[in-house]
């Protein structure tokens, strides 16, 4: 591995599967290390916060390893971070989920569950599907989505979604059978997606490549 290559740390808080995130990083040529060690996070040039599973367990594990404070320190000082799925949700202020409490609070907003009302009208939860992403106010030219077209398909698998306090950070919206939600955000050094780019075929891999290029990680 090239020693001059910037160090990307894929944060491992011991939930879920990081194999495909690592594969995507390797495929585009990033020097990515999977780690649960807060020292590695503090020494990283960029961070990836993946995740599947429950918000509360994820926050507990981040705290247990001292990763929460390390992430907050780095990101408030400008280190690029890429949150994926639950990893995006963890960046927000708090979850509505009973007893789940506070997130990392790097982006102001809350985490909501798809309402019971949609289940009553036979809409399935979790939302497990390829669905389209489209623009709100932000253009994608200076983002990792530069190679995407409006309404391209990305792969989703989730029951919760983020609701930012301020629409300015919204990079894409997605509509699941009548429910419109924020499916990715960009605010300065913070980029995050509800969908899984590493599971979204070539277009998804382009997001890894362009995030790495924008942040000079290659």
């Amino acid at each position: 591995m090239d020693n001059n290559l910037k160090k990307v740390v894929i944060i491992d808080y011991q939930l879920g599967n990081l194999f495909s995130v690592k594969q995507a990083c390797d495929t585009v040529g990033m020097n990515a290390l999977i780690s649960s060690n807060s020292e590695d996070v503090l020494n990283a040039d960029a961070l990836i916060l993946p995740g599947v599973g429950a918000f509360i367990e994820a926050m507990n594990n981040l705290k247990k390893f001292g990763l929460d404070v390390a992430i907050q320190n780095k990101v408030t000082r400008g280190t690029p971070i890429f949150g994926i799925c639950l990893g995006q949700q963890l960046l927000f202020t708090e979850s509505e989920e009973f007893g789940a409490g506070k997130g990392l609070d790097l982006i102001s907003g809350i985490i909501k569950r798809f309402p019971e009302a949609i289940i009553e009208r036979k809409v399935k939860v979790p939302h497990i599907a390829w669905n389209t992403v489209f623009k709100l106010n932000q253009e994608w030219d200076n983002s990792a989505l530069i190679d995407l077209n409006n309404n391209d398909f990305m792969y989703f698998i989730h029951s919760y979604y983020v609701k930012p306090s301020d629409d300015d950070c919204v990079l894409t919206l997605t509509n699941y059978d009548g429910i419109e939600f924020c499916s990715s955000i960009l605010k300065n050094n913070i980029f995050a997606t509800q969908f899984h780019p590493e599971k979204s075929a070539d277009k998804g891999i382009s997001i890894y490549k362009n995030w790495a290029l924008i942040n000079n990680l290659l």
């Binding site: 194999f19 495909s20 995507a24 698998i157 899984h196 599971k199 075929a201 998804g204």
Partner: peptide
């Protein structure tokens, strides 16, 4: 780079952990 599901003979948490570790989603 699309989701992969794996089944057949998975009996325990450790079996599940193992197939996730080798790349199943």
């Amino acid at each position: 780079f699309i989701p992969i599901t794996v089944g057949g003979g998975l009996r325990s948490i450790s079996d599940i952990k193992e197939v996730l570790r080798v790349g199943a989603d």
